[in-house]
Amino acid sequence: MVKSNKMNWKSILLIAGIISIASPLFAGGPWPQARGNGYFKLYQWWTVFDQHYTDTGELDPNVTTGVFNTSLYAEYGLTDRFTGILNAPLFSRNYMNNLISSTTGETLVEGEAINSIGDIDLGIKYGLTKPGSKFPVAATLILGIPSGQTAGGSQENLQTGDGEFNQFIRVDAGTSFKIGKQTNAYTSLYTGFNNRGNDFSEEVRFGLEAGAGLLNSKLWLIGRLDVVESLKNGATAATVNSTSIFANNTEFSSYSLEAAYYITPKIGVSASVAAAFRGEIIAAAPSYSVGVFLDLKK
């Protein structure tokens, strides 16, 4: 399948890729919220990078670029099988450093920044198996709303969103178990397909996740592996008038580690780090996240 070459320059950006690294951090697992239960998190996610994976997977330098999102994440059990999902970057900032001559000290290119709301994700998860199943399976549909800014700065290369409406459908399966007599643990895996608009290439995504609740389940340690493979069926830089260095067809394999600590039975804090260890056309730097959450099911 070859898509048309009508994608405009707004639809291409690294930001789409680097935010993708953060995306698997939420909406994962085959466990819908029970009706009336919910999980809400206010978190700060950011990455700053001065090199990137090129189209051949090698590392090249770039002007230091940062992306910062202050986001609200929410899951709410509409029924015992349907869970509504929201991830809203309420404040998103993208900046690039000044470029200074090391010889003269003169500013060659002025750094710039933009601030706006980011791309909002709306989703719904449906439990394909009965609540309480030993091996639950769930399907999730996430709609990526292009609410962010797609062109900012004098070069119009700063973005807080990718400008495309995407539909990501995924299936999760997993199981929970105990390690020893007291430690609750779980593991799950998923696969999904991301249908993207504006001549972005479609993506196949898959990954796995495992977590264990220590200290009587007050401290959860979670590890994830995620892979995004582009079908590379979208527009290429050669066919569009893009101002971006980073074209379509982002790919990566990444890991992430997260720790979540319940300060009270309902309120806790979390911190995570994620990084791509293989990539194409994506930032080569870790992303970080810290947040405060409210877990109504506890």
Partner: peptide
Amino acid sequence: MKKKYLPLLLIALMYGCIGNDYLMDEV
């Protein structure tokens, strides 16, 4: 609790200030 974790968020936000990159351009 807000006071306790607010500095973390502020630090993260301030990290987003525009800095300087230096280009080796001597010939």
